[in-house]
């Protein structure tokens, strides 16, 4: 399948006065149209940095990122792990940020609210929502930002971290629909078992380097995960086991 984003020998260094941190080293990866790719790895392995580069908000130190999802906000949306909103918008106002009042764009807002199960909470103020609900609002805003899933990229940094299992299942369904309509979903996850259920492809990172890249069921094997987390991994996931009947 045609790749929407391609990383070629991408390196990322962060430097302070005395310390240089190599966040990513020689990353080669591609993300295909219609696929869902999970990036897994331990804390500080470079998952968020990779997503930020793919989102175009961070330029790599060296290497090249090619994207057929042109540099347009209508083709690419990003939800960071710890997002915030300085103003106290209502749920509907926040999801519709960046869209116009045209009917087609308002329909996108409605679809996005439905997809995350917050249509009935549209008038509630963002700051009075729970952490999980705020997370869903921000995912809905990203979905509404994209004009059409076909050829677009949705990047999510730990999107399930604050969600209960039922909401995880709902969001997974929404992401599957996005991919089925020709979009590409790239998400970072801690839960390898959930990643195996959600994603077609997976990238395993360790200390900024790709340990494995390929089909999710191959990459997310106990042997590779043990290497990724530097800890013996026997059981893939608890969340995925709970959710399997609904996923």
């Amino acid at each position: 399948m045609e790749p929407l984003i391609t990383f070629s020998r991408v390196c990322m260094h962060f430097s302070t006065r005395s310390v240089i941190t190599n966040a990513l080293a020689d990353i080669d990866a591609s993300f295909a149209r219609g696929s869902t790719t999970a990036i897994v790895g331990a804390n500080a392995s470079g998952k968020s940095t990779m997503l930020r580069i793919a989102a175009g908000v961070l330029a790599p130190s060296t290497g090249r990122v090619e994207s057929s999802a042109v540099h347009s906000a209508l083709k690419r949306a990003f939800v960071p792990q710890r997002g915030s909103c300085a103003a106290d918008f209502s749920v509907e106002e926040l999801v519709s940020l960046g869209t116009s009042t045209r009917c087609a764009e308002q329909a996108r807002v409605e679809c996005a609210l439905d997809a995350v199960g917050l249509a009935s909470r549209r008038a509630v103020r963002y700051h009075s929502l729970s952490g999980g609900e705020q997370q869903r609002v921000r995912v809905a805003r990203a979905i509404a930002q994209i004009a059409s899933p076909n050829g677009s990229v949705l990047l999510l940094d730990e999107p399930f971290s604050s969600l209960d299992p039922a909401e995880v299942a709902r969001l997974v369904r929404a992401l599957r629909v996005f991919a089925q309509e020709g979009g590409s979903v790239i998400l970072s996850l801690h839960d390898a078992g959930l990643a195996r259920e959600v994603a077609h492809d997976a990238i395993a990172l360790r200390m900024g380097r790709v340990i494995a890249h390929g089909r999710a069921h191959e990459v997310l094997s106990p042997a590779i995960l043990s290497e990724v987390y530097a800890h013996e991994m026997l059981e893939a996931s608890t969340t995925a086991r709970w959710l399997r009947p609904t996923l």
């Binding site: 347009s72 918008f89 940020l97």
Partner: peptide, 15 residues
């Protein structure tokens, strides 16, 4: 100005 109220990365990714 609305989008500027979001997290920097979200705002930048939103154009």
């Amino acid at each position: 100005l609305d989008l500027l109220m979001l997290d920097d990365d979200e705002a930048a990714a939103a154009g």
